[in-house]
Simulated assay, not measured.
Amino acid sequence: MSEAPQPTLAIEARGLTKRFRRGTTEKLAVDGVDLRVEAGRIFGLIGPNGAGKSTLVSMIATLMRPTAGEAWVMGHNVVREARQARMSLSLNASAGERGFYWRLNGYQNLEFFAALQGLNAGATRDRVLTALERVGLNRDVKLRFGEFSSGMKRRLNVARALLVDRPIYLFDEPTTGIDPHSAMVIRNILRQLKGAGKTVVLVTHNMEEATELCDEVGMLYAGRLIRQDTPEVLRRHVPSSEIEVELRSLADSEVVTERLRSLSVVESVVPYGEGRLRVRTPSPEDDVRGLLLWAATGEQPVAGISVVRPELTDAFVRLVEEATGERPAPIAVSERGSPVAARIAHP
């Protein structure tokens, strides 16, 4: 008999495995995953297509029976206590908008799904209107679903998940392929859920989104959980290679570039965005101290200096390679690195 789940965890999995068989062919989709999600946090699940993310979420949501291993949701076993586990969470499936009725408006669609959840007429009206307001669709209640934009459809799908009050919310790629405004609305909702003490599991391909929102992330590759930790700790597995210099003025770019190139420790200097330079040195973590002293004399028209941390996608590639010997393609290319650590600012 297995040990009892840890009481402080919202979600726990031990050796969770899923195999699919078709004739003589077998596919191992999830391979012995051990997972621990603390209550009241945003947990990100990242990995390329085919890594097993949606299959793992489906087993946690009791939609799919594990081949082996066990999982618990709020202490309820997802197989032996499937109903209690299911009533502890709300799932926002990535393809959920396919279930909406195109000839009904947003309110009518949510009214229908509220009835399926067993809400009475009085509670339904309040829950639907509140959900529509939270996703910013309260002014479009009479618009038919078929007339919605992609972003509006995705927001209505999130609203459906908000109809019920649950301790855990599972979101499977809620911001993929939608406009920036809709993505911002959905990310704010995830923050609000966390602020209300809820646990959020976010499946995403967006590494910047995971870094921004998640308290912890789990890296899934070929069905295996490669590593679970905070985004900052995971990014530290990749050595920094650059230092960013922030200029006081765009007009100072040329003179600062020439002065930096004259320093023996500097290997290269290139412009990077408006009013910034990227400097490559042999050891940025050590070399940044020398550049800070160089700039702190006040003779340099520099507003700040910082080490550029590698992105989460860089950490994913490094950790997968270390664990499997394979070098995966990066999940996403970020717009820019994240300059953190030491900074200066002249008065």
Rank of each mutant, 00 (worst) to 15 (best):
T24P: 13
T24C: 06
T24R: 11
T24H: 12
T25Q: 03
T25A: 10
T25S: 08
T25V: 01
T25R: 09
T25C: 04
E26M: 04
E26F: 05
E26G: 03
E26D: 00
K27L: 15
K27Q: 11
K27E: 12
K27T: 10
K27I: 06
L28F: 15
L28C: 09
L28P: 05
A29H: 11
A29F: 13
A29I: 08
V30F: 05
V30I: 07
V30A: 03
D31W: 13
D31Y: 08
D31L: 04
D31R: 15
D31S: 12
D31H: 09
D31T: 03
D31V: 07
D31M: 13
G32H: 10
G32N: 10
G32P: 04
V33D: 01
V33E: 01
V33G: 06
V33Y: 06
V33F: 08
V33C: 05
D34T: 04
D34L: 02
D34R: 00
D34V: 00
D34G: 10
L35F: 02
L35V: 00
L35S: 01
L35Q: 03
R36G: 02
R36Y: 07
R36A: 13
V37F: 13
E38S: 15
E38F: 02
E38L: 14
A39R: 04
A39I: 02
A39C: 02
A39E: 04
G40M: 14
G40H: 06
G40S: 13
G40L: 10
R41M: 08
R41F: 15
I42R: 06
I42E: 11
I42N: 05
I42V: 09
F43P: 12
F43I: 10
F43S: 10
F43D: 09
F43Q: 07
G44L: 03
G44S: 04
G44M: 03
G44T: 05
G44H: 01
L45P: 10
L45V: 15
L45I: 14
L45H: 02
L45G: 12
I46W: 03
I46T: 03
I46S: 10
I46M: 05
I46Y: 07
I46C: 06
G47R: 09
G47E: 09
G47I: 01
G47Q: 04
G47C: 00
P48A: 15
P48N: 07
P48S: 11
P48L: 14
P48W: 08
P48F: 14
N49Q: 15
N49D: 14
N49T: 04
G50F: 01
G50T: 04
G50E: 07
G50K: 14
G50S: 00
A51W: 01
A51Y: 02
A51K: 02
G52Q: 12
G52L: 01
G52V: 05
G52A: 08
G52I: 02
K53M: 01
K53C: 03
K53H: 01
K53N: 04
K53L: 13
K53D: 05
K53E: 13
K53R: 05
S54E: 15
S54H: 10
S54L: 11
S54P: 15
S54G: 13
S54M: 14
T55F: 08
T55H: 05
T55M: 07
L56S: 06
L56R: 04
L56C: 07
L56Q: 09
V57W: 01
V57L: 14
V57F: 03
S58Y: 02
S58R: 15
S58C: 12
S58D: 13
S58P: 07
S58E: 12
S58T: 06
